[in-house]
Computed example of a mutant assay.
Amino acid sequence: MTGFSRLLPALLMATAPLAVLPVVAAEEAAPAPAVDANAVAETYAALLERDYVYPDTGRRYAAAIRAAIAAGRYAPLTGAALGTAIDADVSAVSPDGHLRVRAPDNAAPAPGGAAPVKRPPRVPVEQAGWIAPGIAFVRFNVFPNDPAVTATAAKFMADHADARAIIFDIRTHGGGGMDQMDVIFPWLFAKETRLVTMATRASVDAQGGSPIDGIPSMRKVAGAAGMVTREHWAMPNGDARLRDARIYVLTSGATASAAEHFSLAMKHTGRGVLIGDPTAGANHFGRGEELGGGFTGFIPVGRTYDPATGQDWEGVGVLPDIAVPPADALVRALTELGVDAAEAKRLSDAHMPSAPMERRKGRVRAPAR
């Protein structure tokens, strides 16, 4: 999802004891190894051909990349320019909201492009608490694979179990996994409820590479040939206090991947009302892979979809129930709950996200474990 991405983490260098080293003349120092652009591209092509969620599209991606290799287009490129060129060739075959080749952090920007801006890590949870009498509010910016964040989400639900309404603000939510969802959903449903369906390439599942295998809320079911299909279920926790609470979900064009999974689950089941803009349209879930030379690529290996229609949201997003500009979504939710318009505007201003509320290429996190 998701779909639902974490690229391989950087290794931390341990501090070594001080040692006396021999002096080496500058001319004797070994030069840094050059990146073989064609090898990076071929590794990506092979992975897409083997594992991409749609086998035929994966083969077409691989053919386009190999044609560019044969034409010599990649060989002179380095850094971000190489990643940009490969991305362009792949997108020309079939756009995918998760596909991206990422250059090493210290790589030069593409010609004409700005140097990458290093942003601080996004805070997963913000402004959790009571926003008005009987109304709880929480903003999730990401669903990380982090037990501490999962515990925070669980505590928020328990601490606000007497709410008459909960507003989930996911207008700046870039994606992630399912851990936090699986401590939220048990509070909201009176009976076991099928939320969404997720299908993974059978070849990936057979390798033990499915990012959703082994999750307790997932149930394997019969599905399309060549795919392993699982359904995501909400499992009630036995506490009925929030079963009738009104649920609002605030969305924008920056609501991506796992956040779209959350949105579709609320919309498909009728449990929550979506307010804002259509979501980003980045459906496919998968995993990060090393491509060599410090380059990494995200390989979408599955898709998440509405079990009633079989439709996913790739390229189109999950549509809101109430369409308003994202900046006005909280005002609308609060007035729907009976808060005076002037007070709703004041509260909205005080709870406005600081991150952009529109889709930014390459900012999607897909479910991965």
Rank of each mutant, 00 (worst) to 15 (best):
V23T: 13
V204G: 01
R243H: 15
V125L: 10
R100A: 01
R230P: 01
A85Y: 11
P55Y: 09
A350L: 14
F143R: 03
A282K: 05
S210H: 00
L99Q: 03
E27H: 11
I69W: 03
I170Y: 09
G302A: 11
A108P: 11
A282H: 15
G72F: 02
A92Q: 11
I212F: 05
P300K: 07
P236G: 04
R139L: 08
G83T: 11
I131M: 04
L188P: 01
R6W: 10
R171H: 13
H284A: 15
A32M: 11
A202Q: 13
V316T: 13
I167D: 01
K361E: 13
A202Y: 01
R100C: 01
V20I: 14
A342K: 15
T197C: 01
A64Q: 10
K361I: 12
V93A: 03
V318C: 03
A80D: 15
H160G: 11
G58E: 03
A108K: 15
F295R: 13
A341I: 08
A63H: 12
P104H: 08
D105S: 14
P9L: 06
A206V: 02
F156I: 10
I322P: 07
I65E: 09
S5I: 11
D349C: 02
A151Q: 14
F285M: 03
G281A: 08
I322D: 03
A355N: 15
I170M: 12
L7Q: 06
A75R: 15
V228C: 01
T150K: 09
A88L: 09
L18E: 13
D312G: 14
A256E: 14
M178R: 04
M178K: 08
G297E: 04
T150V: 12
D182K: 01
R139F: 06
A355K: 14
Y61K: 06
M1E: 06
A39Y: 03
T309E: 00
F143C: 07
R73V: 13
T304H: 02
E343R: 15
L337H: 11
D239Y: 02
K267H: 09
F298I: 04
L250N: 08
G272D: 05
F168A: 00
